[in-house]
Design a protein around this nucleic acid. Structure first.
Lengths: 181, 181
DNA sequence: GATTACCGCATCATTGATGTTGCAGTTAGG
DNA sequence: CCTAACTGCAACATCAATGATGCGGTAATC
């Protein structure tokens, strides 16, 4: 692929992620325009709207997978792995703000991949329970969901918070909550 | 308004909230069908799609406002008010699963009302800080956002949890987090 | 039980989004 | 500098959603 084509491609993917996050019904024309590209250029690269969405998901899943790999969720000491994961996943969530849950109803391939990554985080939460970093009796599914939501929240509602500080905030809230004493 | 018309109206609003939560691009036809009503009936009651969305938001805002009033956020002891608010707002979030943030971009009236309600919760969070129920130094905006997200999460991702238990879970997570000791 | 409000059904017009194609112009890369 | 790849532009076809309307039938309310 030629260099300018590659630039346009990533521009379209990023513009797509950004516009679709604000409005899941964003038109191809709007995405193309935001990417500084003609509408037909997008159609030439992606056969249909679904293919474009798929490509955006794949891009996000790729980034997330790298973070999961580099966090060493299984090997590293748990607090270290948690912090490394958070510091990595928050920028990913910002770079690809598109919400997976809502949009990959019609993309089974992306769903499968998402579930594989999800399973790695589930295992991490179980490990946290086993090693006593979470209170006994805490529901693993609840802990997992809360962690996801805290990540999304700090990523998108507090965009000016740098990743290290954001990771601290999420970890502290997750483990200690916000209450006194 | 005739009784059957009122029934149809609420059926359309509920179907709309449900379908729009799953897919913000859900068609009027799909909503009408889900409500067991002809498409033209919906068009007769609501001049356009925007009006239907507005009505759904208004319905949710009405319910939320009742909860805010009855929680007595200013007068009651803080833990009592918090629990009462949670126990009330979780069913509202379930009854009207539509996400406000995403959808009322184009509905300034709803936005204003939402912000008024939001201000009441902001004040409640400030009160919690002042009275020492939240750790000193905790960012009020962060606490506020986390509370909202915990409510939405327990409401939609744990639909089988009864409101009292769900409220306990949210309050405990909010104040104490999930970590050990 | 009469009336009137409401509904379902069929039909039509309109619009915005999607997707395709041909062509001329530009630019990356050998 | 030459070529092939890529783009923008214009034009076109298609389709699904929106919105309007008239009419016969049904059901709520008095």
């Amino acid at each position: 692929m030629r260099a300018d084509a590659a630039r346009n491609l990533t521009a379209v993917l990023h513009a797509g992620a950004r516009l679709l996050a604000e409005d899941p019904g964003a038109s191809m024309a709007a995405i193309a325009s935001a990417a500084g590209v003609d509408r037909t250029t997008v159609h030439r690269r992606f056969a249909n709207r679904e293919a474009l969405l798929s490509a955006v998901f794949q891009a996000k899943l790729d980034s997330a997978e790298s973070v999961l790999d580099e966090a060493r969720l299984v090997e590293s000491p748990l607090p270290v792995a948690l912090h490394r994961y958070l510091e990595g996943i928050i920028p990913v969530s910002r770079e690809w703000p598109v919400d997976m849950r809502l949009m990959m109803q019609k993309d089974p391939a992306a769903r499968v991949r998402r579930e594989e990554q999800s399973a790695r985080l589930d295992a991490f939460i179980r490990r946290a329970l086993d090693e006593g970093y979470l209170r006994a009796g805490v529901d693993a599914a609840w802990a997992r969901t809360v962690l996801d939501e805290l990540v999304d929240t700090v990523a998108h509602r507090f965009p000016d918070l740098e990743p290290p500080q954001a990771a601290d905030l999420v970890a502290a809230t997750f483990l200690n909550g916000l209450g006194a004493t």
